[in-house]
Simulated scan of single mutants.
Amino acid sequence: MFEIFLNVLGVVFLWLAVEYCLRNETAQSLEDASLTPFADDPEVARRVELATGKTVKAVAPEVAKPGWGNVDM
């Protein structure tokens, strides 16, 4: 019985923590955050826009500066 109480208490604590963290977020900011993984690849951003109808604020991929090489680690 005590274990069930602790499990319920843990779920309630998790729910309250998530609610507290998201208290100042708007629907628009959450939607923008869900589209962020697609923002660095313009081609993928276009495909997501076509599939969902939502606008992805895409950025151009970073280009190496002259004299600077891309180092793979």
Rank of each mutant, 00 (worst) to 15 (best):
E25Q: 11
V56S: 00
F5A: 14
N7W: 13
A58F: 05
G67E: 06
L50P: 00
E62N: 10
F38Y: 12
E49S: 04
T26C: 12
K54R: 14
G10A: 13
T26W: 06
E49H: 03
L50M: 10
A33T: 09
P42I: 03
L16D: 04
E43N: 06
M73S: 12
A60L: 15
E62W: 13
T26L: 11
A64K: 11
G69S: 06
D41H: 01
V59Q: 09
E3R: 04
D72G: 07
T52Q: 10
L6Y: 00
A33Y: 03
A17D: 01
P37R: 00
F2S: 08
V18R: 08
L35H: 05
V8Q: 02
L9T: 02
F13R: 10
V71S: 00
T26K: 09
A45L: 02
L30R: 10
A58H: 04
L30V: 12
N7I: 06
F5K: 13
D40S: 15
L9D: 02
V18N: 06
K54V: 02
A58Y: 04
L16A: 08
V63A: 15
S34D: 04
T26F: 08
E31H: 09
E31D: 08
E3P: 02
V8I: 15
V71H: 07
D41L: 07
V71M: 02
L6T: 06
T55A: 09
V18I: 15
V18K: 11
R46S: 07
D72P: 01
L50G: 13
A27E: 12
L6G: 02
L9G: 05
S29G: 06
V48E: 03
F38A: 01
V44W: 00
P61Q: 09
N70W: 08
V59F: 13
A64H: 04
L6E: 03
A17W: 06
D41Y: 00
L35I: 03
A27F: 14
V59N: 06
D32A: 08
E49G: 04
K54Y: 04
K65M: 14
V59Y: 05
N70L: 11
T26N: 06
L50Q: 13
A45Q: 01
E25T: 09
M73L: 14
E19Y: 09
G10S: 09
K65D: 11
V59D: 08
T36I: 06
F13D: 04
E43S: 10
F13L: 15
W68Q: 15
M73G: 13
D40E: 14
I4N: 11
Y20P: 00
A33R: 13
S34A: 14
V18C: 12
G69R: 10
L35A: 00
V63C: 07
L50V: 14
